[in-house]
Amino acid sequence: MRPEKVEIKVTLADAPDPAAPARHVEEAVERLGLTGADPWTVVFCEDVTDAAASTALLDIGVVLRVRGKTATTGDSTIKLRPSRWSQLDPEYFENVDADEDNLEDLKIEADWAGEKRSLAASMTVKWSDSRLADGRQVAELFSKKQLDFLATSSVGRVNLAAVSMLPPITATRFGEITVDGLTSKVRGERWRVDELDFLELSILVKPKNAVAAQAALTAFMQQKQLPVDDSQVSKTRRVLEHLIATSTI
């Protein structure tokens, strides 16, 4: 088995140094001409306790994310990353596009960030309500099919009654841009919370084109003199660790 698509990512990040704040991300947005975006609200859910400020779910490869795109529209995603084909229930071996009869979108994709490569399986459902403002329990943010996906395919048991919603962050999804040497358009997304600021550029390509596409995207970053973050720590992990360390949940 192999994924149908590979998502290739590069990230720029501003180090949180109040004495000498960097502006790499802001400069990159301007230099790349990234426009046409309205901010979204993004909320992650984690297993947080007073005695152990840790990313327990992320550590077992579970990401629970809810995005509010307007006051009454958004989507909820359960992502398993890193994932394995062998941990997935056979019902989830193939990608599924959402339609009128099936509200959930299932994607199994390779995830490349520098030399770090993994498999990610995610199920997303779009919604048209005000669930982020309704005071719902964590389990009520996701569909029954998503909860079945989590229960049957996660490497560990997750009791959502013991999971907390973290403080929201702001995300901006920009319009796509064209890069020489790439047939796929490049998507930009910026995350900001407190002093943290990240810009991620990503492309989605077929596996046979992934090596060449990653080289072309890297060359583009060098040509634009944009400093890529080579730490190999995902923006999701950095943001979750920051939120947990600074929140009073």
Rank of each mutant, 00 (worst) to 15 (best):
P3G: 11
K5R: 15
E7Y: 02
K9C: 14
K9W: 07
T11V: 15
L12T: 05
A15H: 11
P16C: 09
P18Y: 08
P18T: 14
P18Q: 06
P21Y: 00
P21A: 00
H24E: 06
V25F: 02
E26S: 06
E27D: 15
A28L: 01
E30I: 09
E30S: 12
L32P: 01
L32I: 03
T35D: 08
G36N: 04
A37C: 07
D38V: 12
D38G: 14
W40D: 13
T41H: 00
T49C: 11
D50V: 11
D50T: 13
A51S: 13
A51H: 13
A52K: 10
A53C: 09
T55M: 12
T55R: 15
A56L: 07
A56S: 13
L57N: 03
L58V: 04
R65S: 03
R67F: 02
G68S: 12
D75Q: 03
I78K: 07
K79C: 04
K79M: 04
L80Q: 03
R84A: 14
R84P: 08
Q87K: 08
Y92E: 08
E94F: 08
A98D: 06
K107H: 07
A113K: 11
G114H: 02
G114I: 01
E115A: 12
R117N: 13
K126R: 14
S128P: 10
D129Q: 04
R131K: 15
A133E: 15
E140I: 06
F142P: 01
S143T: 05
S143C: 05
K144S: 13
Q146K: 08
L147P: 01
F149A: 03
F149I: 06
A151W: 07
T152M: 08
S153D: 10
S153H: 09
S153N: 09
S154Q: 05
S154F: 03
R157E: 11
L160F: 02
A162K: 14
V163P: 05
L166F: 04
T170I: 10
A171H: 04
I177D: 06
G181K: 08
T183Q: 11
S184C: 09
D194H: 10
L199F: 04
L204C: 15
V205R: 00
V205W: 00
K208G: 09
V211P: 07
Q214E: 15
A215R: 14
L217E: 00
T218C: 08
L226P: 00
V228E: 01
S231G: 00
K235Y: 02
R238G: 15
R238M: 12
E241M: 07
H242W: 07
L243S: 05
A245G: 08
T246M: 07
T248D: 10
I249Q: 11
I249L: 14
